[in-house]
């Protein structure tokens, strides 16, 4: 059972590799599982085996898979907290400085620092910057947007957004050895033969 072709073929997500290129570089191996539980079990085993550069790909979030990958907690809380705090401070100081120094407005003799009136805008600025730092922080940390990824060269990977659960091992992993890694993944009972993915 040596299923994968040695040379990659055209794939649905953007042209075939050019024949003129050098030998295509192996990105890694991709194993397909029928459900989330099987994927989580496989991921735990792969981690126990010592692989570190790996990832799972699922059509919906599987928290146990992230745990098995050794990513128990995301950084987004900190990112959004700092973003929100920055926005709140900036919003408050903007109002204080603008209405006191930059463009002084005497409204009915109220003090320049009439802080209770500044709360609504401070709050809105906090929400705005926290949300935007969530969006941009998410994209930056995930390395998105990107137009292409080697995994999209796979012929079966489009089912990762549909009904299959994938485990990918990267060739860049220090422990990676093509023959052993392939045999190891094959031993985890994937629902179809392990596929080699090229960059």
């Amino acid at each position: 059972m040596t299923p994968s072709p040695a040379t990659p073929v055209g794939h649905p997500h953007g042209g075939a590799h050019h024949a003129a290129d050098d030998e295509p570089k192996l990105f890694g191996l991709l194993a397909e599982f029928p459900d989330a539980d099987a994927l989580v079990v496989a991921t735990r085993k792969a981690r126990a085996e010592g692989y570190t550069l790996m990832d799972t790909h699922t059509p919906y979030p599987v928290g146990d898979a992230a745990d098995a990958l050794g990513f128990p907690k995301s950084e987004m809380g900190v990112v959004m907290f700092i973003g929100g705090l920055t926005g709140a401070c900036a919003g408050f100081l903007m109002q204080y400085w603008d209405n006191s120094y930059g463009y002084s407005l005497n409204i009915g003799g109220r003090p320049y620092l009439s802080w209770p009136s500044f709360i609504p805008i401070t709050f809105e600025m906090m929400v705005l910057t926290a949300s935007l730092s969530g969006l941009f922080g998410l994209m930056a940390l995930c390395g998105l947007p990107r137009l292409h990824h080697p995994l999209f060269n796979s012929k079966t990977f489009d089912r990762a957004s549909r009904d299959r659960f994938f485990l990918s091992l990267e060739a860049a992993d220090p422990k990676f050895d093509l023959g052993r890694a392939k045999a190891f993944l094959q031993g985890l009972n994937p629902s179809s033969p392990v596929e080699e993915v090229f960059e």
Partner: peptide, 16 residues
Amino acid sequence: LGWRGSAIHWRRYEKV
């Protein structure tokens, strides 16, 4: 945006 359903991405995504 090139979303590929990575578990790490999902975890961040859900938190956001």
